[in-house]
Design a protein around this nucleic acid. Structure first.
Lengths: 222, 222, 222, 222
DNA sequence: CATGAATGAGAGTTCATTCAT
DNA sequence: TATGAATGAACTCTCATTCAT
């Protein structure tokens, strides 16, 4: 009884811990989006999360750890959501890339300021943290990479440099966050996605192979 | 005689002031590349520049002003060098874009860490400073923009979305700084420039028009 | 129960806050008496109060706020003590003035250096703070004013200029602090009070009316 | 020849030195009246005097020395002007006191803010400086003291406590500067002088002896 | 588990003073 | 004589972190 109750206590505790951490990280992202990492005082974070300063230190070892966890949390959203969205459209590499890029940009749009935060604050972390984030970014793009490789292997895509193509896609997706002050004035989200896809497909898909994807190219001349 | 000597005194002073400011800005960029803006203490800057803390405040009103001037200084390098490099290759829009993008990336390469700095620290500035930097960035890309417009008008280029194309070029150039940890491992500077140019030209140049620029496409299949 | 315990927590906290502020203000007055406001460093204040520098800023917003509160605290001693001392001697205007002036000077004597501080440092405050202090000083003298007016109305006093008489009394009381280096050498506190009262009563009390207050005039010829 | 020209050079130099010092002290008083001693930066003083910071240090050893000299300069105005003004009215002690007090207050009025400055900043000086100023203040009041003593000796004045009377007069004169915010609203300079003189004469002049000075008492009942 | 009072090192900035010109 | 660039110690204030409750 004691053992089992302790066991369930542990489970309950784990859940509470996780929810507290989530609450604090959400608050941290909210504050950092407004003020940046360095301008965020622990008191401000405590206020935002409606807890005491002391409590924060029961869930995170330091302010820096919060930054790392916050950034990692954002990157994990990609890992969690990207592959499923691509799998949902089937096996066609073109459709997979289209769906993947679209999802990638949509996640960025949903976390626009958090993504910008990532660019701004990563360097604040110690080398180990920076390395982890870079690694995660690469992992994050893996589903796109597989789709490009598959397409090239299948002869559907031009034999492009896969590394370059994938990271260009990533950059053009990130650009929606980094240059939102520019692109956001010119395009809505859907238009941005479609136009950037066209840009990529002009390289990816050989001229002769574009016919089946006429819907993707419908705005080519605009 | 007195007047002329006074005049030259002023000129001498102006020169000294300018050289001090340059020295301090260079030191600031050096320190900020290592540590970021917030981690740079004024004492650290003074040490780097081998002057006293107090002296810094005779040339800059605040730490923030140093950041702004440093970033502006970097952006001005583009204004100064981009157009001349493009003019040197003549009127052909393709060659102008090729020369312009190449120069753009080379300037970035020469200021790689400073460009990353720009992304990281701009948000630290007050709104007025941020606006000035955004405006400068747009101005900076103007020569590229004109070349794209000219090419489209001449029928040499696909009638692409000029805004998107130009800022994509800018982003892919910035990417050399932002993702140097990735791209730098894979390509040398020349290769990076050529591959990204191909990427862009696949959209910009209609298939039938690529023949005269076979040298640009020579590595297409690699 | 919970509510009441919370209530008492708040009360306890309020008490602690008040006592800390008092402790810090006392320390500030002590240091400022020695060194003046500008020479008092926050570190020196912290040392005097035996707390850390940071703590001071949890109770006061700025060094200036400490000065204002310290001065106001001194002035409030007058508000609190003057009227009771005058009421204790009954209704006779002469006795009320005598008691009031005596108390006024005695309070000054107890806060001699703090009063001098008020003169020295008031100008340091922003206009709003200066205005508040002037207003408080006028309020402080109100009981004396009422007694003079009452005496004039009752025909016991010469129909003097009330404003002048009251502020002359205030000045001659302040003089015990401002010119202690002079008066303190010549008189003890009691003598000073009696002599200044005689000075005032020579104007206030018509010759014919002095008989009942012979004890006040006993030293007139010394 | 050389010697004589050197001699006249010396005289010229002495004159220039004196005029520089005067110029700088005037500027210092002007700035300190606005901002107080501690808020006055040497740069601000240099700007006010339209010289360079370096020059100030050729005429004064330190900022503190400027303060001392400025205050001494103000006090010397009393020494220079008070006795002549009193001598001008003849030998009658009452007239001498009236003329002396009037002059004293008029000098204060002309240096109202400088007098307030004296009260505020004297404590900033080292003990030696403070002592010198106190001594000068006593010296300054000497002509008044002599007149009171003469009047008492001649039987024209009540045998008052001379020390108290003189310093009360000084305080009531200083009050015009210290409490100008109060008195200046209620009285013009002439009225203030007359009313304070009446206050003093009520003690100084025995009732029976007031007849010859009816003009001084003409407003007694107002 | 949760609080928030307390710490103290370190930040940006100012300014009296010096000295080469 | 006059300048003002240069110095660096000292200032006020902030804030990540700790710990008694």
């Amino acid at each position: 009884m004691t053992a089992s109750s302790t066991g369930s206590d542990d489970a309950v505790r784990q859940t509470r811990v996780r929810s507290r951490r989530r609450q604090l990280l959400d608050a941290a992202v909210a504050v950092m989006e407004r003020t940046g990492f360095h301008q965020m005082s622990m008191q401000a974070l405590a206020d935002e999360a409606e807890v005491s300063v002391g409590l924060i230190y029961q869930y995170f070892g330091s302010k820096e750890e919060i930054l790392l966890d916050a950034i990692v949390g954002i990157l994990e959203a990609f890992s969690d959501q990207l592959a499923p969205a691509m799998d949902a459209v089937g096996d066609d590499p073109v459709e997979r890339i289209a769906a993947g890029f679209e999802k990638y940009v949509r996640i960025i749009d949903a976390n626009r300021r958090a993504v910008a935060l990532t660019y701004r604050e990563s360097r604040t972390l110690p080398p180990a943290g920076q390395a982890r984030i870079k690694e995660l970014e690469v992992v994050t793009a893996a589903p796109l990479r597989e789709a490009v490789e598959a397409g090239v292997a299948a002869g559907v895509f031009t034999p492009v440099d896969v590394d370059l193509m994938v990271y260009d896609l990533v950059m053009l997706a990130h650009a929606w966050a980094l240059k939102y002050w520019h692109f956001g004035r010119l395009y809505d989200l859907d238009t941005y996605i479609r136009k950037q896809l066209l840009f990529a497909f002009n390289t990816l898909i050989p001229v002769g192979g574009r016919e089946p994807y006429r819907h993707h190219f419908v705005l080519e001349a605009t």
